[in-house]
Amino acid sequence: MCVGLSARVVSIEDGTALIDASGAKRRVSADLIDDLEPGDYVMVHAGVAIAKITDTDADESRKIMESLDGNGETDH
């Protein structure tokens, strides 16, 4: 339902972040994330940064699969 785009924060000014996704740049609202800094990666939806991204999808998936092979617990 929600096209999300992972993008890097280039700069922040007055609650607005300039984000860069492979060279496509746009200003989006940074109102929903308090401690945003340039260099952070964020998930962007409809002109709003909705969450910080903390990992690559490959690493995340690897960790989840490993936890599944172990005791079946993940750190959710």
């Binding site: 096209v3 785009l5 860069d20 996704a21 492979s22 060279g23 496509a24 746009r26 962007v44």
Partner: peptide, 12 residues
Amino acid sequence: APEVRGVCGMLG
């Protein structure tokens, strides 16, 4: 081009 991919990603 990466930029074209980026724009396409933004707009689906």
